[in-house]
């Protein structure tokens, strides 16, 4: 870990300005991913701005009947929030499927969205990785790829986004609210927030330098059965091989987002349309054009089967 200077942010604007003025500065919130990566020198900031004291830890109802979740709300608190449990159960379920109790007590809403991939080659600084070191090559292609992506992958990168929460956020049509260093506020739909790797896998979101996430808001609840099914090797404290988050209405219509298959939580309108026809149709639409490796092609079948189980559970 490189040496860094440290400051506590006094305001969102000051924090954003501070990061914008220093290309080697980073915000730190829960720190559970950033410090992990700093110890390995995958992240090498020279200045950290602690944003924990900015009062962004509230969950409030919005005037349109939705919910506004402060960027610094801890995963534990978000999962336990009464409204989330009642109206956005998918989010609660996804959160508690992730990490461990200790990590969820620190991890924040915005930090969870900004989690970086768990590709083992990204994590080993001896190995080429386009995401870590642009232009160095992708070691996962032709290497160990069982955990990695099958959708939206490129020749440069087959990494996945590891978050469970983001899958639920995607199904819930969340909107990410930000402040830019110049004070401009913008709202980014979750579907637009994460990028596909293309030939710039090191650029993972649409955030600009210094742009600061203040909140994530959810539209009014849509009802339906909320089911999050995470599939993994061990029973807990593991990243998903695949995960399926779905909201299914009594008439069989609904929406589905999938984790563990792409560089972002994966959802397609065309697949939602197919949902009433069943898992085969919906997952066929969702994973059309998949580009799996020999080691992770099982994910195609696994998504379909898991979605099948989710649909049965919703009907049951």
């Amino acid at each position: 870990m490189r040496a860094f200077t440290f400051e506590r942010a006094s305001s969102v604007e000051a924090a954003a300005k501070s990061v914008a003025s220093n290309p080697d500065a980073r915000f730190i919130a829960g720190g559970t991913n950033l410090l992990d990566l700093m110890k390995l020198e995958i992240e090498t900031p020279t200045h950290l701005i602690d944003v924990n004291g900015l009062g962004l830890d509230k969950i409030e109802a919005t005037t349109d009947g939705g919910l506004r979740i402060g960027a610094l709300v801890r995963n534990t608190d978000l999962a336990a929030h009464e409204t989330v449990r009642r109206d956005y159960g998918l989010l609660s379920r996804a959160l508690v499927a992730g990490a461990s109790g200790q990590l969820r007590n620190k991890a924040t809403t915005s930090g969870n969205l900004l989690q970086r991939t768990r590709c083992p080659y990204f994590y080993d600084t001896n190995q080429p990785c386009n995401k870590r070191q642009p232009g160095s090559g992708c070691s996962a292609l032709g290497g160990i790829s069982r955990q990695l992506g099958v959708m939206g992958v490129s020749e440069a990168c087959i990494a996945t986004h590891p978050s469970d929460m983001a899958v639920a956020m995607r199904a819930l049509d969340a909107v990410v609210e930000t402040v830019k260093p110049d004070g401009t506020i913008r709202s980014v739909k979750i579907e637009d927030f994460h990028r596909l790797p293309g030939d710039t896998p090191h650029i993972e979101t649409v955030l600009e330098r210094g742009e600061f996430i203040t909140a994530v808001s959810l539209p009014p609840p849509v009802g339906g059965r909320h089911i999050y099914r995470k599939v993994r090797d061990r029973a807990s404290y593991a990243f998903a091989l695949v995960s399926v988050g779905a909201i299914i209405q009594s008439d069989g219509k609904g929406r589905v987002a999938v984790g563990g298959v792409a560089h972002k939580p994966w959802r397609l309108e065309a697949a939602d349309v197919e949902l009433p026809k069943g898992a085969k149709a919906a997952s066929g639409a969702l994973l059309a054009g998949s580009r799996p490796t020999e080691q992770n092609k099982f994910k195609i079948d696994l998504v379909e089967r898991t979605l099948g189980a989710v649909i049965s559970e919703a009907r049951g």
């Binding site: 768990r118 083992p120 080659y121 994590y123 080993d124 290497g143 160990i144 955990q147 090797d233 061990r234 029973a235 807990s236 404290y237 593991a238 990243f239």
Partner: peptide
């Protein structure tokens, strides 16, 4: 390749 305790999975309580 999986040279840490996140990627080399050993049993946890829930197993």
């Amino acid at each position: 390749v999986n040279h840490d305790l996140a990627s080399y999975e050993v049993p946890v309580h829930a197993d």
